[in-house]
Simulated scan of single mutants.
Amino acid sequence: MRSRSAPPTVRDVAARAGVSPGTVSKALNGTGQLRAATRDRVAAAAEELGFRPNHLAKSLLEGRTYTVGILTSDSFGRFTTPVMVGIEDALGAGRMSTLLCDGRGDPLRERHYVQELLNRRVDGLVVTGRRPDPRPSLGRLPIPVVYVLVQSDDPEDLSLTYDDVQGAALATEHLVASGRKRFAHVSGPERHWSTQRRREGVGRALEAADLPLAPELVLLGQWSEAWGRTAAAQLLRRDSGVDAVVCGSDQIARGVADGLREAGADVPGRVAVVGFDNWDVMVEAARPPLTTVDPNLTALGQHAATRLMDAIDGKELPRGVHRQPCDLVVRQSSV
């Protein structure tokens, strides 16, 4: 007789539901050709008994650990967090667990973590980070690897990121459609991939609208509110006719809006301002709240996790860089 303190087994569930242990296994794992009524009866019996599957036994039987490693270089978490939410959403549906490792952008530390994850026999690996700049590939590993937000420098890898050019063009087109004519662009350090790509998007949209972007109205500095305030003062000194500013980040956009307001330039009455990232704590607390480009990072994480699960199940991973379109979230700073 089973001890009262012992956890219920598959056989106990089978006896309660009036089916075989094999049927219990199929019902709880979502396999086999079973009637819905049978699955429901097994699920009800498992719930009544408080049955919990033995994941270790399942792992040994199937040769999988049902864990996925996540390697990030984003210690701050601003960009990794929404990506992680999307990954967890997708993996949770497949009853997968995650192991998060912060490589801090240090190649030696990354190699250590990769080896540790391999030692733990994770089924797959997601590599992410703070910016979509290209990064060195981890090379060929014995498990599927998906790069998300960041881009591997190896075209044989799968990298999923968002489209900076399309997003910046979307913001610019919005301001053109609202009747703005004299544009400025304020963004981050020139060496950053995002800075270069977003500037390209602004330029493309203005060229298509036959509007100029004067070189002296392209100001590059730091990803900060302080830089945005400084840039706003410079813009007004260089060209008092500026009526639209497309910013490379929400932090910069908030600083620009503050700097314009402090100088007596109404936002959006005199100058419209648009940011990039849809960082809620920045855009919603700004005065006025900021129109911004949303790179849909949670959806990006979901997509990456889905691709990785497909590869774990035996499907071939695509190759190259795949860019997800951005959306525009319109608030009071541009209308």
Rank of each mutant, 00 (worst) to 15 (best):
L34C: 00
E156V: 14
T65P: 01
V176A: 02
G139E: 11
V245H: 05
K58T: 01
P325L: 08
L100H: 10
G139V: 01
F276G: 10
G30S: 08
R229I: 04
L99F: 13
D239K: 12
G241L: 03
L235K: 10
N119F: 10
G129R: 13
Q151L: 04
G179A: 07
Q234W: 08
A15E: 12
A171D: 07
D157I: 10
P136Y: 03
Q332V: 05
F51G: 03
S249T: 06
G63D: 13
A45Q: 11
G18Y: 06
F276S: 11
C326M: 03
A226F: 15
P7R: 14
L141M: 12
Q222D: 08
T291K: 05
D310E: 09
R4M: 01
Q115K: 15
P132R: 03
A272N: 05
E62K: 04
G269Q: 14
R135W: 05
R131P: 15
P132V: 02
L158R: 13
G179R: 02
T31Q: 14
G124Q: 12
L49Q: 00
E216H: 08
A253N: 12
Q166V: 14
C326W: 05
F276E: 08
T195M: 00
P8R: 02
V267K: 04
H322P: 08
H185T: 02
D74R: 01
V68F: 09
V150T: 01
L235P: 08
D133M: 02
V329L: 04
D243F: 04
L149R: 15
L297Y: 09
N278T: 09
R204K: 09
K26Y: 11
